[in-house]
């Protein structure tokens, strides 16, 4: 570099190019968790907005660090040098505080608005009553996720409370996940749909999402729940067409018919009183 001024300009230009290029890449590229449900799409959008704002700030910090460590070095001193004390500069202070304030406040406003407006999301109910839904909402399909050590089962109250070991969902249908646990704290994580919620005993956590893409996905537990927490996952969760879903439900109802009388009645939480009693299974 010919002199410090040139080097400074180079660092500045590299930062601007990296910031803009990175932002374009973030805006165009695939952002997790993807577009497989309306909830996942909304989460991807939020992550993208935060990343687009954060990347220029982060790359600016890296550029400033490089500038300080490499470009702005003093020449090796021939005598002991003590730098001047930093002095106040109102313009720098005001610009700094104003810029960071604007960035952070705009993000706070954005987040608050997103929280407040009506959209797919979650709620927690600590009683057995379900989260009350406004009358104008589409009728969601209620699917209960029961977590226990160390697997998930799923109950469909709309179809007689049958219990299955595999999660199958109809596409383009609003699903209401009621997530609970029988013993310790687990967490139900359906990454592709953007659904993750803790499964707490005697608590009913509600998440709503509408799957939009047919496929086979992974479901796993994401709260350490004991010895086989690492095994508490499978790749067999499916989103299928509505006709395929009806066929699957009929098949499961037929399979479940002999054991329905032993299943506890459907409830949003299961306590000792409505868990299967010992000795009941013997025909």
């Amino acid at each position: 570099m010919r002199n410090r001024a040139t080097a400074t300009r180079v660092v500045l230009i590299v930062w601007i190019v990296a910031a803009v290029g990175g932002d374009v890449g973030l805006a165009l590229g695939p952002i997790p968790p993807g577009q497989a449900s309306d909830l996942a799409s909304s989460e991807s959008l939020v992550i993208m907005i935060l990343a687009v704002i954060a990347w220029p700030v982060f790359s600016g910090v890296l550029a400033a660090l490089f500038f300080t460590l490499v470009v702005n070095r003093l020449a090796p001193p021939t005598a002991e040098v003590s730098a001047d004390a930093l002095r106040g500069n109102s313009r720098v202070q005001t610009t700094w505080i104003a810029t960071t304030l604007v960035i952070v406040l705009s993000l706070a406003v954005y987040g608050t608005v997103e929280l407040a407006i009506d959209q797919p999301g979650a709620g927690i109910s600590t009683t057995s009553a379900s989260l009350p839904m406004p009358a104008s909402q589409d009728q969601p399909l209620e699917v209960q996720v029961i977590a226990q050590q160390w697997w998930f089962t799923y109950r469909y109250p709309t179809y007689g409370g049958i219990e299955t070991a595999q999660l199958v969902l109809p596409v383009n249908q609003k699903i209401q996940f009621n997530i609970t646990s029988l013993d310790v704290i687990h967490a139900f994580w359906f990454f592709a749909l953007g659904v993750k919620a803790d499964a707490v005993p005697l608590n009913d956590n509600v998440v709503t999402a509408t799957p939009t893409q047919i496929g086979t996905y992974r479901v796993q537990c994401s709260e350490l729940c004991g010895l086989w927490h690492g095994n508490m996952a499978d790749n067999t969760a499916m989103v299928v067409s509505t006709s395929d879903f009806s066929a699957w439900i009929q098949q499961q109802t037929a399979l479940d018919a002999p054991i329905m009388k032993y299943l506890p009645p459907y409830s949003h939480v299961y306590a000792g009183s409505n868990l299967p009693q010992p000795g009941v299974y013997a025909p």
Partner: peptide, 14 residues
């Protein structure tokens, strides 16, 4: 102990 460093409660009892 199987709870990890956060020691979450219902598992800690077990």
């Amino acid at each position: 102990f199987t709870t990890g460093w956060t020691g979450y409660a219902p598992l800690a009892d077990q």
